[in-house]
Design a protein around this nucleic acid. Structure first.
Ligand SMILES: [Zn+2]
Ligand SMILES: [Zn+2]
Ligand SMILES: [Zn+2]
Ligand SMILES: [Zn+2]
Lengths: 131, 131
DNA sequence: CGGATATACGTTATAGTATAACATAGCGCA
DNA sequence: TGCGCTATGTTATACTATAACGTATATCCG
């Protein structure tokens, strides 16, 4: 399966570094602010282009429910689990789940092209903190 | 389970009518345009307030992957299936799937609060049209 | 070498999505 | 009547994303 480019430009690497250094998804404009701190003048297209390339390379994902970006490297499609307390995002492999959903839709004549599955809640660590 | 208001204001009913009359999700600003056609001056908060109330009442959902709104009345959480050709949106009940994902996450100590599952692809009707 | 192509990036402007903040109007009821 | 509540009106602004065009650089090949 095509995973996109095998090398990153300096813009792309910088955006990826910031996402990996964060412990929660970042909005495009948060990233823009960090880039401007680092380098002075940077405009939105610079950030969005890097995000697009990184997403196509399978290195990050847009978290649709947050309008933000996270360095989740799960194979697509996959399940993304988000803690609303601490912001951590994890990819979860759930092949059985995806397969049974797939069968279900095929039976109805629907040809699936892309799935987005995002689960919000509270992670184990945060639950302990409140105990 | 709280389903929200049991009666709709005129704004809310108007927004819901437009969504139901459409055969595809509508963006908030598309709705705004229709309202302005109907009534003259209308501002974005009028639309967004109606959307919020309708969503809380379980009558519509925001399709996160489209940044648009659709009159999907499935019980939440549920699976939303979107045809990228004709735009139709359907709610699909999949209690088994959701339960197995739930068990999986519980086992990891994650307390689920909200799931968003959106599947894009091509519906049976559109597949026939291309045959 | 010289020219064609491709890719990334810079820069300016603008489109598209959503909410803050405050004012007004109407209703139910003490 | 006066108060609290809800919905709505109104103005302004915040936030998210892309269009369009120009420039620099690398690469390929004639
Ligand atoms: Zn930095
Ligand atoms: Zn957490
Ligand atoms: Zn109308
Ligand atoms: Zn279709």
């Amino acid at each position: 399966m095509g995973q996109g480019a095998d090398h990153l430009t300096s813009n792309q690497a910088q955006v990826l570094d910031h996402l990996r250094a964060a412990n929660a998804p970042m909005t495009a404009y948060q990233l823009l602010g960090r880039m401007q701190n680092d380098r002075g003048a940077v405009a939105p297209p610079t950030v969005y282009r890097a995000l697009k390339a990184l997403e196509e390379a399978g290195l990050i994902r847009r978290i649709e429910t947050l309008r933000a970006w996270a360095p989740v490297a799960t194979v697509r499609p996959g399940v993304v689990v988000i803690c609303d307390d601490c912001g951590t995002v994890r990819g979860v492999e759930a092949p059985g789940l995806l397969e049974s959903l797939h069968e279900r839709l095929v039976a109805e004549g629907f040809a699936e092209a892309r799935k987005t599955i995002e689960v919000h809640g509270r992670c184990g660590d945060c639950a302990e903190d409140r105990a």
